[in-house]
Design a protein around this nucleic acid. Structure first.
Lengths: 229, 229
DNA sequence: GTCTATAAACAGATAGAC
DNA sequence: GTCTATCTGTTTATAGAC
């Protein structure tokens, strides 16, 4: 059930009856992504969630608070599904170049799998794209909670793998280029599907995408190493 | 003046009084991108363009026709600014692997310059992102006119450079990965600017981005060559 | 044809009963 | 925590004056 995907993520802050909160966030994430924030009324959100519209003000302080709660769920999801628990604890500086490279490739695999296969990635992508087009307070939450930290973490790993400085301009840009390869398959999916002649992305297609990105990242990183020796 | 950027592009199909058409397309591209199609009224578009709102029905048959005209301008702009006249005429199959690689790198440079520096790329990006989130008839025009042909062209060049088949699955995916690197700096610009601590992207920043992408594409392509020999 | 006044509909937020 | 009822501001549509 797609209904429960963030239940586990939110479970740490779960309160007595969390059903209403969850239902509202799920409905809002969907509608804000598909129609936009202004075009989605709290009554419509509440109807889709199957709860009373007054609950939005009670639980989130209002419509804007609900949007920020959506961002919070996205942040938690990205950290858990993209980086994974192991990466959040390991100290990148202590890794050997090859171990760092392997860790990066493992993250690329996780991220590719999530972006191409996970049901929830579609509504997350729409929500995030809208925040990029017209940023709100939720963009702030997404950046501080996910985009910034994830990029920072990847820079540390990249630096360990390539022998550069974690906050050198070249390191940061190289990580953006790597991230771009993965995210493009999610963001521009309609274009990819059409050009590839695909109906869906199953395991076969996912592995093909992952192999291409892995090869590109590995080649780029090894080349970057060579440039410095 | 940003006002005239598509004047040259549209000049081939220019009619007696093209000022109204251009002004309407410019205003619509801006408003559709910033607010969305439904949220933009024809009165608002006409007001921003400084022309009478009845001109929309006269010139484009209605609001939907105006949107398709916006897509047409984007198609013409992308073909001219990203591929360039030289690439549209050359026959990729006749190029040596190194010449094909150089051509790809030249296109990457052109595309990076356009995406990072050109004023009009911002409103184009917003318009295109909205078409990806909720596709309309304009998405069709964008795909058939630009996304599809440009990708096909790049696949031919990639195949010539790497020694693969132009419509092999790996070739097409590798080109998507390459395109993703370039476009991410445009699509996710708010994130990039913030993380890099940049206020604007001037020549210095553009060159830094281009260098990173060039190095990545070159390394990936050379590695792909090696895998086959 | 253009403008303005007003009504109808709908938005988000709130108060109080349960 | 959830519900009904209601308040207030905004937008959209319509009608009438000019």
């Amino acid at each position: 059930m797609a209904l429960v995907w963030y239940a586990a993520i939110m479970s740490k802050v779960r309160e007595p009856d969390e059903g209403t909160r969850q239902a509202l966030i799920r409905a809002a994430l969907d509608l804000f992504g598909r129609q936009g924030f202004e075009a989605s009324s709290i009554r419509q959100i509440a109807q889709l969630a199957g709860v009373n519209s007054a609950g939005i003000a009670y639980h989130f302080g209002g419509k804007a608070g609900l949007r920020e709660a959506c961002a919070g769920v996205i942040v938690a999801t990205m950290k858990q599904r993209v980086l994974g628990p192991a990466v959040l604890t390991v100290e990148p500086a202590s890794l050997s170049p090859d171990a760092a490279l392997d860790t990066i490739l493992a993250i690329v695999d996780r991220a590719t799998a999530f972006m191409t296969r996970a049901l929830e990635s579609e509504m997350i992508a729409r929500f995030v794209l809208r925040e990029i087009i017209e940023p709100s307070s939720a963009f702030e939450a997404l950046y501080e909670g996910a985009f910034g930290p994830v990029h920072g973490r990847l820079c540390m790993l990249w630096a360990a793998a390539a022998g550069t400085e974690p906050d050198a301009r070249e390191t940061k840009l190289a990580v953006f280029a790597m991230v771009g390869q993965v995210l493009y398959f999610r963001l521009a999916r309609p274009i990819v599907m059409r050009r590839m002649g695909w109906e869906t992305i199953a395991e076969d297609e996912e592995k093909a995408i992952a192999a291409i990105i892995r090869a590109s990242v590995r080649a780029t990183l090894l080349s970057a190493r060579g440039d410095r020796s």
